[in-house]
Design a protein around this nucleic acid. Structure first.
Length: 867
RNA sequence: GCCGGAGUGGCGGAAUUGGCAGACGCAUCAGACUCAAAAUCUGACGGGGUUUAUCCUUGUGAGGGUUCGAUUCCCUCCUCCGGCACCA
């Protein structure tokens, strides 16, 4: 029978659906395994082979776990709300309400066609009311606990998407979706107080089985910094300015002070004579994009306020300046400046001719500072503290300041509170009502969900209000508290709210009483294995951990960390046509980024001169015009071949340069497996275990040994996500099987032992099943299996078969391998030495030389050192 | 600038704990089959050398070190990728 993958794959996809093979039911008798891939937002370009770099290996893993007897939860859903989907809808002039389900259906179809084993009864769409009702419910919980608050602050504003953005959604000063430079805009906004959990989010990383790199990224993002707050009195005033420093040991060197332009005391302290200049500076700072303000290579700017502060340790009068290199959003928005020992302060002092005083020395002497010396050392010019080491000084000055009421130890975080409100249509409405009498009032639970109204025009307004503000029927409501007229909150929640709890919903999709029942949560959660791209390191993964901790604190969950093990798949790169930039490309934007290559647009590709096209590797995406679709690959080579290739081509975590050539090898492998089994199956006997011969030929022993070695290896390597070497191991086995029993014209050579052939056939099918599921099922059925192969147990390897009776031991002379001898397994040192000395070659090499020592490693080698 | 990760044939990659470098695959070359091609099967495949075979030698980014022995451990440097970056 020929390998007709088109027919076989369609057949099993149909049967899996009909028989609901992957339907998962809570079964307290069985051990659960919850395996989850980050749910995608469905985009119009559909899935490409790069997406499968995650889905396919994870799917093989699930099938393997299922064969191991676990009750596997493997769900899929759609991160449907939010900017990505909405931007695409706007671009196409479509309504996201219709567009998203269409796209989701396309995704689902591709996933089915590539043989992914999801329980589709648990499909989630986060933009449906039965889901976002609970997103709103959790919002209210956060609100009740004081973890959701509204504040007016200069926020990240994307002028192109016309919405506020969380810090995590700004990369290099640009919007994560459209790459437009982000502006600062003071607006009333909703925040989640994630900073209240900063310490726990940091500490609990220790418990997680995540890659060190991933944890490090989260640590950096949280950015815990221990330091001291110091109060500086203002001269001729009773005001004080509080600063944060990690180097209180350099206090004596503080020769000036800088406030952020947005610092609340600025207008009070500014001298009348300086006022116009100060106000001009503030206006200029506000008008600048983040990209400019954060540009590290830019030279320092600043303005003197005319005010002086008193250095609390030496009573010196120091000038107070404003400069935009000090951020209002970190620490106290004010810093004491020690130009001798801080690069930024040094540069500022040089530029504005401010005094530079050395207070730390490498060796205790004083010398002229050519640059800022930030390293710790020995205090100088520091009154009674001089001579102390920096660390001793730091220890001593804290209590001293505290005693005088001038300072206190403080911890600061780089992490900012999570800005959640979006001035956009396509998100879960924030369930708050503004009442002139009662203020901010939470929508009562019974009134949830606050439905997102169906509208024709949902384009962002750009006024700072969401399009919902233009819908009177939505906005006008009554205050739940006093019954008076009130206004609904019109901002919606950013999409990351939806993805911060979806993994909980999968445990109990469809529950209309609660976000998920406690029994379902207790059984399925936490997620045992979570896979996805590394790009969510500082956003989704931090948010989801935060929400989980809040729900845990509320007693709603029995665990504090949602994702025990995390694995990040590499991406797929494809050859992409591009061009050199033209001068006008840089026009209009304050683009400091070095761009030496621009992807050709679709319309450009046709007419662009071929010799001017520059091909480069780039991540697959439809906008780059370099997409390879799984549907196409599955049609030409079969889904099973595609799957094997995606796993074999490189380690799970690695990036891959896509080429179609490699898939031939995987297809050839699959076909070879099929061909051998077609020849072997006529010999198959169900009772082969009882029929294995007592006496076996070396060839028989050899192929069985390889089989059991492979079985051990494949099981261990699937477990550790080494799919590439697991597939390679089966290829090796197949090569040995072919050497043992080469199929010709659909049959095997005569005189082969049917029991051994049966063992090989049955085990090979079971081993292939996670990787090539359609073929696995088909062959299992041909073998006589009546139920799905995934209900069959993963076979145990026989440890007795694994080891050979003899092993090759290398003989080294002075560190070089000179010969090898074959000895019995576990052969002792003396015997090996005796054998080695019998070798002609070794005898020759040792002739006339003196043996200094010998090192023996059992079953491996004997190393002879001589002179 | 700071913090991670990685450098192995023409290519993707493999090597338990420091113990036969290059598994497996792609590409290439040769042979078998064929009228022929494809498919399939078999073999060769890092560099250099010679007495051409169970041979010698060199070789895992560069240089040094530890060791009987280093792709693996240590030091210095180079390159690439990722993250953070005026966070006081």
């Amino acid at each position: 029978m020929n390998y007709n993958f088109t027919e076989i794959e369609a057949k099993w996809q149909r049967l899996w659906q009909e028989k609901q093979t992957f339907r998962t039911i809570l079964d307290g008798q069985k051990k659960k395994y919850y395996c989850l891939e980050m749910f995608p937002y469905p985009s119009g370009s559909g899935l490409h082979v790069g997406h499968l770099k995650n889905y396919v290996p994870t799917d093989a893993f699930c099938r393997f776990k299922s064969m191991q007897g676990y009750n596997v939860l493997h769900p899929m859903g759609w991160d449907a709300f939010g900017q990505p989907a909405e931007n695409e809808a706007i671009r196409l002039g479509r309504n996201p309400r219709q567009m998203v389900p269409e796209y989701a259906a396309t995704y689902r179809e591709t996933l089915i066609k590539t043989g992914c084993s999801y329980d589709w009864q648990r499909e989630i769409n986060s933009s449906l009311p039965d889901y976002y009702k609970w997103t709103q419910w959790i919002f209210l919980l956060l609100h009740r606990k004081g973890l959701a608050y509204r504040a007016t602050a200069p926020i990240n504003w994307c002028p192109s998407c016309k919405t506020g953005l969380a810090n995590e959604e700004v990369k290099d000063g640009r919007c994560w979706r459209c790459d437009a430079p982000v502006e600062k805009k003071p607006m009333p906004q909703w925040f989640f107080r994630i900073t209240a959990y900063a310490d726990r989010l940091l500490a609990d990383l220790e418990k997680l089985n995540w890659s060190e790199g991933m944890k490090e990224m989260q640590r950096d993002w949280i950015g815990r910094s221990e330091g001291t707050e110091v109060d500086f009195a203002l001269k001729d005033s009773n005001l004080i300015i509080r600063v944060f420093t990690t180097r209180p040991d350099t206090l004596f060197g503080a020769t000036f002070m800088v406030l952020a332009p947005e610092h609340p005391l600025v207008s009070q302290i500014t001298a009348p004579k300086r006022r116009s200049e100060v106000e001009a500076y503030i206006r200029k700072a506000q008008g600048e994009s983040e990209i400019d303000r954060l540009n590290i290579s830019r030279s320092k700017t600043g303005v003197f306020t005319g005010a002086y502060a008193i250095n609390p340790v030496n009573g010196n009068k120091i000038p107070v300046w404003l400069a935009d290199y000090v951020l209002m959003s970190y620490g106290t928005g004010a810093v004491m400046c020690v130009p001798g020992h801080d690069d930024r302060d040094f540069e500022f002092a040089r530029k504005f001719d401010l005094p530079i005083v050395q207070v730390v020395s490498r060796d205790g002497s004083t010398y002229e500072l050519k640059t800022a010396e930030a390293a710790e050392g020995i205090a100088v010019n520091s009154g009674v503290w001089s001579g102390l080491s920096s660390s001793a000084f730091k220890k001593a000055i804290g209590p001293w300041l505290e005693e005088k009421g001038l300072g206190r130890p403080t911890i600061n975080y780089r992490l900012r509170d999570w800005l959640i409100s979006r001035q956009r249509y396509w998100g879960a409405p924030i369930p708050i009502v503004h009442c002139s009498g009662c203020g901010e009032v939470a929508v009562p639970e019974a009134q949830l969900p606050v439905l997102l109204p169906d509208v024709e025009n949902y384009q962002p307004s750009g006024t700072g209000e969401s399009p919902l503000a233009l819908i009177p029927e939505f906005v006008q409501t009554v205050c739940p508290k006093c019954g008076g007229a009130a206004r609904r909150e019109t901002d919606t929640m950013g999409g990351y709210a939806c993805s911060s709890w979806y993994f909980l919903r999968f445990a109990d999709v469809g529950n209309d009483k609660f976000f998920a029942s406690r029994s379902a949560l207790d059984y399925w959660l936490p997620v045992d294995l979570y896979t996805g791209g590394i790009e969510h390191a500082r956003s989704h993964l931090l948010y989801a951990r935060f929400w989980t901790k809040v729900l845990f604190d509320e007693g709603l969950l029995g665990f504090e960390e949602p994702f025990l093990t995390l694995r990040n798949q590499g991406s797929l790169l494809a050859m992409t046509p591009g061009r050199r930039p033209r001068p006008q490309d840089e026009h209009g934007e304050n683009d400091e980024k070095i761009v030496d290559w621009i992807v050709l647009k679709h319309e450009e590709r046709e007419q662009y001169p071929a010799d001017q096209i520059v091909w480069r590797w780039a991540r697959m995406s439809k906008s780059k015009g370099n997409v390879v679709t799984p549907d196409d690959m599955a049609e030409r080579y079969g889904a099973d071949s595609l799957r094997v290739y995606e796993m074999f081509v490189a380690p799970f975590e690695d990036n891959v340069h896509w080429s179609e050539e490699g898939i031939h090898g995987s297809h050839r492998f699959i076909t070879r497996v099929w061909r051998w089994l077609q020849a072997a199956l006529p010999l198959y006997r169900r009772e082969w275990r009882d029929e294995l011969p007592m006496e076996m030929s070396p060839a028989e022993r050899g192929v069985r040994r390889k089989l059991h070695q492979t079985l051990r290896k494949v099981g261990a390597q699937i477990e550790t996500f080494q799919f590439n070497t697991a597939v390679a191991a089966i290829m090796e086995l197949l090569n040995e099987i072919y050497a043992y029993a080469l199929p010709e014209k659909d049959s095997l050579p005569e005189n082969l032992n049917p029991a051994i052939i049966s063992e090989l056939a049955e085990t090979l099918i079971l081993m292939m099943a996670p990787f090539a599921p359609h073929m696995g099922e088909e062959l299992w059925q041909q073998l006589g299996g009546t139920d799905s192969v995934y209900r069959a147990p993963w076979p145990d390897f026989d440890p007795d078969q694994i080891f050979e009776k003899t092993v090759d031991v290398m003989i080294q002379v002075n560190g070089k391998i000179k010969d090898k001898i074959s000895v019995a397994l576990d052969c002792g040192e003396e015997d090996v030495k005796r054998e080695a000395m019998k070798c002609e070659k070794i005898k020759h090499l040792l002739a006339g030389r003196q043996i200094v020592k010998m090192i023996f490693v059992k079953n491996k080698m004997l190393s002879i050192v001589c002179k």
